[in-house]
Amino acid sequence: MKEIIEKAKELLSQGTVDLVIGYEQCGDKQCRPLFVQKPEEADKLVFNEFCVHNLATYLTRPEVKQTKRVAIVAKGCDIRAIVNLIIENQSTREHVYIIGMNCPGVVSGKAPNPTKPHTKCQTCKVRTPQMSDVTLGPTPPESIPMDKTITHPDVEELKKKTREEKWAFWREQLSKCIRCYACRQACPMCYCNRCIVDLNTPQWIDTRSNLRGNLDWNIVRAYHLSGRCIDCGECERVCPANIPLMLLNRTLQEEVKEKFDFESGYDLEACPPLTVFEKDDHENFIR
């Protein structure tokens, strides 16, 4: 796409930013992140339906934080991650130059045959980026209105199952986990310097990839993302074991929406629900 290349060249040559993080094509139906530090390297930049990665995950890296200013090619959904990073003091609005992309939707499924439209795109409220320094790309189809409550069919289906069925389902799914932590590393919201699973005094979570460790790990990760997950689906995409991790994250998103009327990543002034409280929070489960 010509306009991204031009914009990146302009930003780099004028010295507005010293790094542009964008996408490049790497195969017929595959894109991947690209770091551009010099104007002449910007020619590889593209944007299309295969640009599924959430590049905001790179913003919390030491070498990216050390830059004077960084430009990032971001879809509306990726900007939600940037908003959360700013709220959580991991980045500042001034440090990030957001090249917002109008986005008609991206694919999901693994290369080389990604076909299905991404689940997150079917419920997208931000096809036009909500907060960007420049917005590029043709006008996308209309987004779902902001105030609409989203439910996910796969989550609802799982909710209908009996407790035993759910347990059996997750036993089967989580036993596949090999504990490569691709989910954690790809996640823009997983930026802890030292993850709980890497702590060993005390060792809360078994580091072996047995079911006990896998269950604890995936529970803890989902729980730590409650009220913070921005539904980018990167964890599920990069999982080499194809575990439907978003089922857990989306369950918690729905719960946050229902109990606290909150959706993360849309408002720079908002307080994440697990950092605040109301005196009359729902409590009929407590005796």
């Binding site: 991947r32 992140p33 690209l34 770091f35 995950t57 790179y58 090999i178 504990r179 490569c180 932590y181 691709a182 954690r184 590393q185 790809a186 990069v238 080499p240």
Partner: peptide, 16 residues
């Protein structure tokens, strides 16, 4: 650094 700047340091590659 140029070759590996994208890597996000998980262990998917080594485990497969």
């Amino acid at each position: 650094q140029k070759l590996t700047s994208k890597c996000w340091s998980c262990a998917a590659c080594t485990y497969v």
